[in-house]
Amino acid sequence: MSTECHIFQARPSALRRREGLVFFCFRAATYFVLLCGALIFGTIVFKGAGSVFQVRAPFLNTTFLTEAPESLHVFEFHGQKMELGDGDYRVFQARHPDVARVKSESYIYSAGGIFPCIVGTVLLVLGSMAIALILGVSAAIYLNEYARDGRFIRFVRLAILNLAGVPSIVFGLFGFGMFVIFFGWNVSLLAGWFTLAFMVLPVVITASEESLKAVPRGFREGSLALGATKWQTIRKNVLPYALPGILTSSILGIARVAGETAPIMFTAAYVVRDKLPWQVDKFSEFFFQGVMALPYHIYVVSSKIPQNEYTERVQYGTAFVFLLIVALIATASIVLRSRLRNRYQW
């Protein structure tokens, strides 16, 4: 009898081969998804980085990040190919009147930068997250701390679940119908804030409730047993422990708010606006002005202007900046969450 052979001998079999094959398919599917992600990310980073960074000091293309979009004029002048933004073109024209006779092609939005869009997106995110956090955290406190399970609460939970599934464009329509038209706010920051806040509300409520649930029951009971009121207990002995969790999970909500285009298309976003948001006459006007926003700008530059070497810069550049911002937010949330998961274990 061979010593190599025994009752538990591992043997190659059709079963094993099939298992290997199936598992290989699963693995391939997984890595295919990751590869696609890397490809998309890589293309945009590779092509977009050129618009944002430069080889000379200060290595950052400050024009792109700090100026408003302009039209790009491409023309040939005395055998020299010129590419000038609108402002420069006018100056150049004033200096060389004969330029007017040269045939010039112009591409809108392809010169200058995207500063107003960045500002607009930041404003939209800040405002809507403030509203969503106030509403969402309060709702979560009620659901987790005060509410007793009953028909009404089940109804509220059902509403939250369903709200999470409503398409963002429907939120856009709703915001348009309610804030822009019914309330008469027109296309404004305020309308955008509320639309986005309502859209992200389910995310915030769910995240906050989960964080509150993670706080052990003993914390509450201990506090109540010492004669604290319910609110005192929540304020002193529940919220402080839940807050980090609430904030980190809500960062994902920020990524969603920053990334959505459809809800702001008719509630808050302008294709182009010359004034920056703080250039208003009255303080109240601040809330009732539309803004430019990065995602909407990407939509505009990718659908309304042709694809060529001149427009590519602004297209990829905007996408890159936008992706970078959203990616940073998302990464921050993922990293923070795993950190906190390790730190707060009761």
Binding site: V33, G37, I40, V326, A327
Partner: peptide, 24 residues
């Protein structure tokens, strides 16, 4: 490695994907 990466993919804004579709 994989779980956060896929979560990360879900954070890519749809308008960027749309642009990627048009451009590439």
């Amino acid at each position: 490695l994989i779980k956060p990466s896929i979560e990360f993919i879900s954070a890519i804004p749809s308008v960027v994907l749309g642009f990627f579709g048009i451009a590439v």
